[in-house]
Design a binder for these strands. Structure first.
Lengths: 248, 248
DNA sequence: TGGCTTCCTTGATCCATGTCAAAGAATTGA
DNA sequence: TCAATTCTTTGACATGGATCAAGGAAGCCA
């Protein structure tokens, strides 16, 4: 599961790309040293399963690179994604032994793991960690509530536009763009994963993506590569208030 | 807004009905004394608005009695409930000045408030509070994810059955019943509020409630009073796994 | 008592999205 | 280079839930 080569941050937390956003963001040098002695990395290929719902969960982890999803499946196969974990997001819950959701690597994925037991002790003894975890959990709850509005009340077209806007924003936050109004990026997920995210079928996703393309809201090259000629135009299609927050 | 009479718990936290489940659950006697000196109560009538989205939010609070809801409204009036606050649940977020959702009293409501600033200081200095808040926030996130599955993938009939099961469970947790298989309680919300919760229209809610009644899954007297003759039968209608957790 | 007002129910119809089916692109591996 | 596989698109049709419309029931207060 693990690669042979060791990247610089795998020794040294201060080199880590998510150093300032992850659960360890507030840690001081001495606290980082403690984390360094406990952490271990795991890598997953795109499409592979990290954990099945019901599995024992021996670790908690931060996403370092790539994207993971949390999803629930009903007995008859209906499936809903309930979490999208981007770099710096936290996986797992202190005090929980069993995974409540399927965890899947949507792209190639690297996670920084801590054994559950020692991490739980750390939370009690290191307020910098528990405070940061609280903040991140509150952010996730806000995101979940946005998502509930999307699932309960938006049309298929608005759902697609919203998802594209979310991904564009995240991409803009990572890679600074020169142009203010032209965004280009790859969708990091299949049509089926988009459908699972949005509570739609993959056919409806495909049709609505085509419709947004036909109407000039997005430009497509290949199936995954998207250009947004006018971000405000895309925002109009999401159904959200005009002032849905600044772009970064 | 506030009543003239003071109930015993309004002086003495140890008398408080939510003492062992709220954000203060883990506090020791001396910590409770500190909270007692800071807290104040507010009361709202059923149907009244506690806060509008965008309002300044000068306090955080625990729900002591009654039910409050969080909801989002789109520009054209589409509305989705995104939180259901029952007694002991926490309202507000440390570090947030502006309410991001409409907060409504669904029933008569009593909340135990703390001014935001002093509470934020308390969180830093009192690990018993921040740890409990983390735990409660993680629970809310789990509930939000269940709800996302409901919104994204369940049929109207499954949604109604799920909501009734949730309320029945909560009611059973508060009021011990003698019979193992007969539950009776009042729906604490209008058909419209149910629709906002479930991502449906009120007409569909009404029709599906009638259908469940016709099929003998529930018994209705009046519009709000429900009896569940066979809880397992109801659970079959929710679409959830058979082992959706024990009843309390 | 009667007339508002609010909440709820039911019917008729429509339409957005799901379902079923087929075939086109892109990718992988032999 | 050619299957085989996976992902995607598109078409035809079905349907669950929304919409529009009317009226019933319960609570309230004058």
């Amino acid at each position: 599961m693990s690669t042979e080569t060791m990247l610089s941050f795998e020794k040294d937390c201060s080199e880590c790309p998510i150093r300032h956003r992850a659960v360890c963001a507030r840690c001081e040098t001495d606290e980082l040293e403690l984390l360094e002695s406990m952490k271990f990395y795991r890598h997953f290929k795109a499409g592979s399963t990290v954990l099945w719902s019901g599995d024992e969960m021996p670790f908690v982890a931060s996403v370092v690179a790539g994207i993971a999803t949390l999803s629930q499946t009903m007995e008859d196969g209906r499936r809903q994604m309930v979490g999208l974990l981007l770099p710096s997001d936290f996986l797992g819950r202190p005090g929980r032994a069993i995974a409540p959701y399927d965890v899947t690597a949507t792209t190639d994925l690297t996670i920084c793991c801590f054994k559950k037991k020692p991490f739980e002790e750390l939370i009690v003894s290191t307020p910098h960690i528990s405070q940061r975890l609280l903040e991140m959990t509150l952010d996730e709850l806000d995101a979940a509530r946005e998502w509930m509005l999307l699932l309960g009340r938006k049309t298929a077209r608005e759902k697609i536009a919203s998802l594209i806007a979310i991904i564009a924003r995240r991409d803009a936050a990572l890679n600074r763009h020169d142009h203010r109004n032209a965004f280009t990026f790859d969708l990091p997920m299949t049509r089926e994963a988009m459908a699972d995210y949005l509570g739609l079928t993959l056919e409806t996703v495909s049709r609505q993506v085509s419709a947004l393309k036909k109407d000039g809201v997005i430009e497509l090259s290949g199936k995954r590569h998207i250009t947004i000629p006018d971000f405000d135009r895309l925002m109009d299609e999401t159904g959200d208030d005009a002032d849905g927050g600044p772009l970064v």
